[in-house]
């Protein structure tokens, strides 16, 4: 289980998807602080405390990453993240609507911890989040 105080960083540009994650956590009675970055760049800034953005401290225990992002895609974000030694150890779960094999393959290139296709129904999604977090460590 994820510790109560451990933070989660959600990198997602779609407001409804953000709401979906928030509601799913709520439904599963998880009160962990959720930080949201709307783009990959913004997420990097938040993780590094660069460009006048307050650094997340402590670093999030888990990053939920969408692949289809404006300006910097999820794969590009992974690339940058893994290059940074201070950030390279972060746990990442890809949360995407793409079921394409090449996307899946590209994500696992950067040693993501899991790859979840966003289910169509919210209930399914809630169950998926529960499953992930239940399996945590």
């Amino acid at each position: 289980m994820l510790g109560n105080n451990e933070t989660i960083l959600l990198i997602e540009d779609d407001r409804v998807d953000i709401m979906t994650v928030q509601r799913a956590l709520q439904k599963n009675n998880l009160s962990n602080p959720l930080h949201v970055a709307r783009t990959g760049l913004q997420a990097l800034d938040m993780l590094r405390g660069a460009n006048g953005v307050v650094k997340l401290d402590p670093l999030p225990a888990l990053i939920l990453l969408d692949l289809n992002l404006p300006k910097m895609s999820g794969i590009e974000f992974l690339q940058e993240l893994r290059k940074d030694p201070q950030l390279s150890a972060l746990r990442i779960i890809v949360l995407t609507s793409s079921n394409e094999p090449q996307d899946r393959a590209a994500a696992f290139e950067y040693e993501v911890d899991d790859y979840i296709v966003k289910p169509h129904s919210f209930d399914e999604f809630t169950r998926a989040v529960a499953a992930i977090l239940a399996l945590w460590d």
Partner: peptide, 17 residues
């Protein structure tokens, strides 16, 4: 697939909520 699926999902989720 991605650009159509995302709003659909959103609609579906919003309706459920």
């Amino acid at each position: 697939s991605h650009d159509l699926k995302a709003p659909l999902r959103a609609v579906s989720n919003l309706a459920q909520w």
